[in-house]
């Protein structure tokens, strides 16, 4: 079984356990192993874009240096961790940025052995495992489920540094849902911002931004939404007023878990608002 160094990040250790647990268990079913890297630290949660604030890059540089001692790939799952680690790696590797890059590496005790390719879990499924193999492992396909894939900002922008997917109309999660037997719906706001961390001091703004996204998914006939960011999941799922027809907001790993046959107790459905288990049962998926 191929083993990957894995960076969970702080939120996945606490408030987004169901994103992490399903991912690890589903990986084993699909045929790879997430080996948590030792003594990781916070990625910083958001990329600091000022040109002179090198201190803000040290946390992610240390993680990358530690990871470089294990191998040349590092798998992430949280969209924010992925964004920060990938952008800092890109900054370190940028041609013409050698002086700053060397300075940053001297700030940390850990020796930086080599550039690390930061891979999102979805990239592992698509490019390392391959859709055919994922499809073969989906023994309980999500037949008939209409899903809106919500990527948010951090997975796709900035385009060059992340080189992940189309920043206007990303596809990788739609492809995964299709491979798992679901029907990805068209969805205009798949890469619109949910308001992100503005929830801390401007809950009203994050709530309005998130509601627009939910309404659009519903208008296109989605029955559920999937995401890979704990903060997107929170803003979409917890800021709204729950009603009977409200769309469940799943982590993509939860639906992957359903499709590869994880038990209900392994899906962490207590995390999601409403009655996600009842919903999945009503669709004949649990």
């Amino acid at each position: 079984m191929t083993k990957y160094a894995y960076y969970p990040g702080c939120t996945l250790y606490t408030k987004a356990r169901s994103l992490d647990i399903c991912a690890r268990k589903a990986a084993e079913k699909v045929g790879f192993e997430l080996a948590e890297m030792p003594s990781w630290n916070c990625c910083g949660a958001i990329y600091n874009a000022t040109s002179d604030d090198l201190a803000a890059q040290v946390g992610p540089v240390r993680n990358l240096a530690k990871a470089s001692q294990i191998g040349d790939k590092l798998v992430t799952l949280c969209a924010a961790c992925h964004n920060v680690l990938k952008r800092v790696q890109d900054r370190l590797d940028q041609p013409g940025n050698e002086v700053e890059s060397e300075r940053l590496k001297t700030f940390v005790d850990e020796k930086y052995e080599r550039p690390v390719k930061v891979l999102h879990y979805l990239e592992v499924l698509k490019n390392e495992v391959g859709w055919d193999k994922v499809k073969a492992k989906a023994t309980k396909p999500l037949a008939g489920l209409k899903v809106a894939s919500y990527y948010g900002c951090l997975m796709v922008r900035p385009r060059e540094a992340l080189s992940f997917d189309d920043p206007e109309n990303p596809q990788v999660m739609d492809d995964l849902m299709r491979v798992l037997g679901a029907e990805p719906t068209r969805f205009d706001f798949k890469a619109e911002c949910c308001g992100g961390y503005l929830v801390v001091n401007r809950r009203d703004v994050a709530k309005a931004a998130s509601q627009k996204i939910l309404d659009n998914a519903k208008a296109w006939g989605a029955e559920a939404i999937v995401t890979t960011c704990p903060l997107c999941q929170y803003n979409l799922d917890k800021l709204r007023v729950m009603t009977d027809g409200a769309l469940p907001v799943f982590y993509f790993t939860q639906l992957l878990g359903v499709a590869v046959g994880l038990g209900q107790d392994e899906l962490g459905l207590g995390h999601n608002s409403g009655d996600p288990a009842g919903f999945l049962k009503s669709k004949g998926l649990l």
Partner: peptide, 28 residues
């Protein structure tokens, strides 16, 4: 400062993912 960490309420602290707090405080 634009955002004062002391204004965060206990229920918010309990519920909002910590990535939001770290990001908001780093930015503001």
């Amino acid at each position: 400062s634009k955002v004062d960490p002391d204004t965060v309420t206990a229920p918010e602290l309990e519920e909002i993912p910590q990535q939001a707090f770290i990001a908001a405080f780093r930015k503001s």
